[in-house]
Amino acid sequence: MDNISVTKVKPHSFFKSKKFKSAVGKGSWYLVLTISAIVVVLPFIWMASTSLKGPGEVFAYPPKWLPQEWRFQNYVDAFQAAPFARYFYNSTIVALCVTVGQLVSCSLAAFAFARMEFKGKGFLFSLFLSTTMISTQVTLVPSYLIIQKLHWIDTYQGLIVPFIANAFGIFMLRQAFMTIPLELEEASKLDGCSRLRFLWQICIPLIKPTLAAQALFAFMGNWNAYLWPLIITNREEMRTLQIGLRYFVSQEGGTQWGVYMAAAMIVILPVVAIYFTVQKSFVEGIATTGLKG
């Protein structure tokens, strides 16, 4: 794939000309990318198509890409066979609370690291960052036992509280706070503005884009969380969407693929919808911070 158009070559014939070469380049570029993109999106199309097929069509060979009869009943069946509405509600509550909690705790901590002087700052900062190196599996069992001791199994607290602190978030917001000019802080001090008010009224509005990106990562990451909700919830009414889907598919014995795909669509759609509305800041957020949602 030519990245730069050739400038020095004199066109002898049309087939050697710059125009022809770039047209061929562009054409093959589009062709290869289109094929790869279709391959990547295919599972989604297959999911959507199966979610609208009746039992007869699901098991038909050869399979058809489009259902002959569009069966929206699968979605109704999914909602009736398992409390997906309840799962949906749980996932939303948990993801929202984690997001808000993380924004508050991370902004406070990030502000302290970025704009304040205190004993043990460097040590504490590297200690915080070191939490990213401790993988989930290492802390999993003891964390579970702590939640059990607190009687937080099958509660929203159990699903929310452990995720309120986040080292990546603190790091990201600290970078943002450091860009705020020192003069602003001095001026606000002279005006008798307290530190908390300076943070809330001046700094927070200035770092809104970073906060938005962080909120998005927190929400999506938690919405998609699997292992922790799996071990922390036993009762059906406390399950999140991901765990509900897992039990739904494993309990039914693996035959109702039309309904399963409808359930998978229900799990996937909200995040995809959010993504399409805030797409730009999300991708930019990843590109600049390397954070994974």
Partner: peptide, 16 residues
């Protein structure tokens, strides 16, 4: 798109 969607849902789709 694949990165965005939950592993649980994606796993069900790929089982299919």
């Amino acid at each position: 798109l694949p990165t965005l969607t939950s592993m649980a849902a994606i796993s069900v789709v790929w089982m299919w």
